[in-house]
Every structure is written in structure tokens, then in C-alpha cells.
Design a binder for these strands. Structure first.
Lengths: 158, 158
DNA sequence: TATTGTTATACTCTATAACTATA
DNA sequence: TATAGTTATAGAGTATAACAATA
């Protein structure tokens, strides 16, 4: 058979999906020793960039169902990264607030990113790497992706 | 809080993962009307580029467990895309062969890719788009990804 | 009456182990 | 004894629906 490559292997959508999946995999592996999953990191980093949020607000913003947010916050609270505070304005809701431990963890996770970026982009010129980041940010905007919010947080790492 | 963006949102690993996940999502949506999942397409396109393969060979090459390959081939055979033929050399194994219907389906899927690529890369110059494809192929090689083989075929679309 | 957090239930998908028929 | 395909079972994860407390 062996057709002259009219297929998907060199198409932009496939390459993005293929390389992106492996990149997510590597990220999960690199942060696993810190005891954190990509999903938990998604919540932590979102909390760091916004004010304290209720579970419902986090669920809506990150695309995780509020039912699943319960157990996730349970784990993160048990790990000491966040704490639940009864909201003063709405006594049904919890304000989820980062702890000092949680902030420290975010910083530690962010410190592994340059190494991972170096490994992934190894052999690429600085110009090519910067051009790629710029193009990716352009595409992310075009695809209505919120900066820093991963569309697959609803399901665990993999 | 609102830190001055020392985080992951503009890092290459995160952007690749974020944009890649959405790209995979869009691909799945575009081919769903054709009745095919990304996983089934992965098997079909691999069959088109190699000779006929046994289920075990497909499982090894695509990273799908042979137990799960059974049901997948069942569905694809029911859809008329492939057929099982007892191997002459090894009567335990099945040679999985593409049918005409299967080949036609591959061609139809491949025809939606240019439109998807256009939508994703809209607003990007031809030079930027081509540079991105070249960089992605470089990274794919570097990350030991086999051309045309998606690392997440083991789990269904999403 | 609607909403926040929570729990319970069913459903889907995956991973492990076993079985059969061939090798 | 090992391997290809198959089946069964259990486990993990998700979605749906319901509940109590509060709005």
C-alpha cells in the first residue's frame, strides 16, 4: 500500500494533537514527584491568578463538574494546599483560599517548566522556539482558549 | 494576588498541551458525522500505510492493548471498514485487511483535514504556518513519536 | 423556587487474569 | 511452554440524580 503521504501525519491538526498529548504526558510525569496532578495544578494556578473563588466558580471556570470538585478540593485540603472558608456573603458557599504551602508548591512546579521546555525544544533555534510560542498563543486565542486554562482538566492526568 | 505572569500560561509545554487538546477535540467533532472515532481512524490509517497486520501487530504498533483491540476490530468489521482473514502462516492469528469501504472512509476523513487546518491556522501567515509544522515535526521526532501514530489512542476520543 | 455543596447510583472505560486454539 | 485471540471480572473515573442548607 504505502501511499505517497497524502494523509494526516504532516497535517497541522494532527501534529498539534500528537505533540500536545506527549507534552501533557511529560508534564504530568515531571510534577508527579511533587505529589501533584495536572488537574490539581490547574486549580492551584487558577487560584493564584484570581482572588479566592468558591467551588462553584472554580468548577465553572475550569470546566470541572462541581460534583467532582468536591473530592478534588478534599484532596487538596488534605495536602494542605488550600483551605475552605465559609463565605461571609453566602453561607452556602466556601471560599477556597491558597495556603502558603500551596503557593510554594506552585512555585516549585513552575520551576520545572523551563527544563521541560528545554528538553522539548532541544535542537530548535531561539527564533524558531519564540516563533512557535507566538503562533501557539495566536491559535489559542483563535480557538477561544482561556490563557492558562487547560481544556481537559475534567479528566485526570493520563 | 494576580502575579505578573511568571507561570505556565505562556510556556511551550503548556501551550502545546492546551492547543493540542483542543485540536484533538475539534478533529473528533469533525469526523464524528462520518461515523468514525479518532481511535478507529488511527487503526485505519495505519493499515493504509502498512501491509495487512494481525491484531497483535496493530496493538503493539498503536499502543492499544490486544484485549481492547478485539472490540475495536469487531466494530470496524461491523461497519464494513476491515475484514478478518485467518493467517496462512499462523492459524492462531487474523490478518486485518482494509476493505474498499475502509479506504474510501480514510479518503473522506483526510479531506476534512485541510478545512480544519485552515480554521486552526486562520490569521497566521503561510510562512508562520509552515515554520510551525516544521518545528512540530522536529519536536515529534525528538520526543520519539512515530509519524502518524497518536500516543493517546489507548483511550477513546473525548 | 433556585443555588451551593454533598452524596449515592449507574454507566463507561480500562487493566488483570484466565481460557481456547494453535505454535 | 509460549503466543493470538477472546472473554470475564474488577477497578477507576464520569455523569446523573437526588439531598440538606441557605438564598
Amino acid at each position: 500500500m504505502a501511499l505517497p503521504t497524502t494523509g494526516h501525519a504532516e497535517s497541522l491538526p494532527f501534529l498539534l494533537s500528537q505533540v500536545g498529548a506527549r507534552s501533557a504526558q511529560l508534564f504530568a510525569e515531571r510534577i508527579a514527584p511533587l505529589g501533584v496532578t495536572p488537574r490539581a495544578y490547574g486549580v492551584l494556578s487558577y487560584l493564584a491568578e484570581t482572588a479566592s473563588q468558591t467551588q462553584q466558580q472554580l468548577a465553572t471556570a475550569l470546566g470541572i463538574h462541581r460534583n467532582n470538585m468536591v473530592g478534588l478540593i478534599d484532596e487538596m485540603e488534605a495536602a494542605g494546599w488550600v483551605r475552605r472558608h465559609r463565605s461571609k456573603q453566602d453561607r452556602r458557599a466556601f471560599d477556597i483560599r491558597l495556603t502558603m504551602t500551596g503557593s510554594t508548591l506552585i512555585a516549585r512546579v513552575n520551576r520545572v517548566l523551563p527544563a521541560l521546555e528545554g528538553d522539548i525544544a532541544h535542537g530548535l533555534s531561539d527564533d524558531d522556539r519564540l516563533a512557535m510560542v507566538a503562533s501557539l498563543m495566536h491559535i489559542a486565542r483563535r480557538l477561544d482558549l482561556k490563557p492558562g486554562v487547560h481544556p481537559h482538566l475534567r479528566s485526570p492526568s493520563r
